[in-house]
Design a protein around this nucleic acid. Structure first.
Lengths: 250, 250
DNA sequence: CGCTACTTTGATATTTTTCAATCTTGGTGG
DNA sequence: CCACCAAGATTGAAAAATATCAAAGTAGCG
């Protein structure tokens, strides 16, 4: 029933631009900032790089499929990915948007629990699960970093669940925008519009709304003067105070 | 604004009935079963027990509060706990129900991200975060177990998000019941009614519904002959086929 | 045995989903 | 370089569902 295009393979063998994987997460223990920060130091990244290859995917490519044997874990370097579950009704539920610094494919117990598709051209480190498992078992320090990252992702998933629990479309959209914004801030401190690499339909599947509701909510927010679209993919928060009032979990 | 009863402290210093903590999770790597299974062997449990104390809480007690310094991690031995976020509107969102074999309090980055309250009398192992962190750093094997467990919880949180994404109350209820049922099966293979330790209001806050919608959905399912209540807290699946049709993510 | 907290049930109002049609935009190829 | 095409996005009107408000019914606990 579910269409299953083959997993796209585009191994590029160029040299890493960086010393190694960048894994971002808010720290596990007490710390000043709650913002995601690079988790690995140069040496740790280098150890990881030894088992990694770099792989690139064009926009729309499938990285892996729900139910497939989980052979690889990915660490996104550039671009954005969505992970989703597709149901027999044709409906989809997006479980996460994956950004640079994030891990993907780790959550499967032997098999991937969701399908991953590139929503922009993507470059990522790819770790054979087998090698990664061996490495982590023998490298306690590195394993601790992974534990931090997964805890971070768990928090993010719970936060997503809180967003989904809201019953007003505009509130969901506001919380979603703020989530994206935090990501931006983490990347650079420049105040720039929030970039929406995903389609309205993806947003709908992520927030548990119809795509029409997403479209209408964006419009209402813009008409109220709370946000402003530069174009369909770039939004600015115009009225911060009212925006925050909406985005505060209700 | 938010009422904040003091964290209840009832340290009981009896000897553990078991050799040590029981942490349940579906395995990380490929494996036959996807059901949660005990993750620790006797030796691992013993090592953990060295830094643990056993603590008991009466029904309704607060284990910790959102925003508090995260000093302890808990492993539930008996009883059930809910973790939730309370908002200024007085509304609550239940992020998880915690059962025996589960971990709690691990996800905070220095501070707890939710409030934990016992919904039945609870007994739990309590690990000082500081000691646990030291132990995990020095005990790679044990750390790997924790990584498995957190991955498991991440999957569970994403599954929760999928449930929340549904727009029909009955479907949400069905998925919720199945989630509880899997938990039961893991505990023992006996076919017995599904026990609902939480209130309808808790269920509503977990599923993003009003408590009236929860009540009505239960009734509709019972009137349709799909489920049957022995009493308000014990449900049986009467018509498995139709139940599964509902519970399949739509 | 009575109180209190939790549940159920009913009627109404609000929202969103659906269904359908139109409009944009980005990409392709002539 | 421009026109065309297809996927994505918007908008409108009607229908369905849940939220809300209000009141009455249960059950558990001391």
């Amino acid at each position: 029933m579910v269409r299953r295009p083959p997993t796209t393979k585009y191994v590029r063998s160029y040299r890493p631009a960086r010393a190694g994987p960048l894994i971002a997460a808010a720290p596990f223990m007490r710390c000043d900032s709650t913002l995601p920060a690079p988790l690995l130091n140069a040496e740790e990244a280098a150890r990881l790089a030894l088992i990694a290859s770099i792989i690139s995917f064009p926009k729309g490519a499938w990285l892996y499929h729900e139910g497939d044997e989980a052979d690889f874990v990915y660490n996104v370097i550039e671009g954005e990915v969505k992970t989703f579950c597709a149901f027999s009704s044709g409906r989809r539920r997006v479980t996460a948007f994956v950004f640079p610094g994030d891990l993907m494919g780790l959550a499967g117990n032997g098999r991937y629990i969701s399908t991953a598709q590139a929503i922009t051209p993507v470059t990522a480190y790819r770790f054979p699960l087998r090698s990664l498992d061996d490495l982590l078992r023998s490298d306690s320090q590195l394993e601790h970093r992974f534990l931090c990252k997964v805890c971070h992702d768990l928090r993010a998933a719970q936060s997503h669940a809180i967003t989904l629990g809201r019953r007003d479309a505009r509130g969901k959209i506001a919380m979603f925008l703020r989530e994206l914004e935090v990501n931006h801030v983490a990347e650079s401190n420049v105040a720039r519009p929030i970039f929406l690499p995903m389609t309205r339909s993806d947003v709908a599947d992520y927030l548990g709304l119809s795509l029409e509701a997403v479209s209408r909510s964006f419009r209402k927010l813009e008409d109220s003067g709370i946000i402003r679209f530069d174009d369909r993919r770039d939004v600015r928060i115009v009225d911060r105070a009212r925006f925050e009032k909406l985005a505060v979990a209700l």
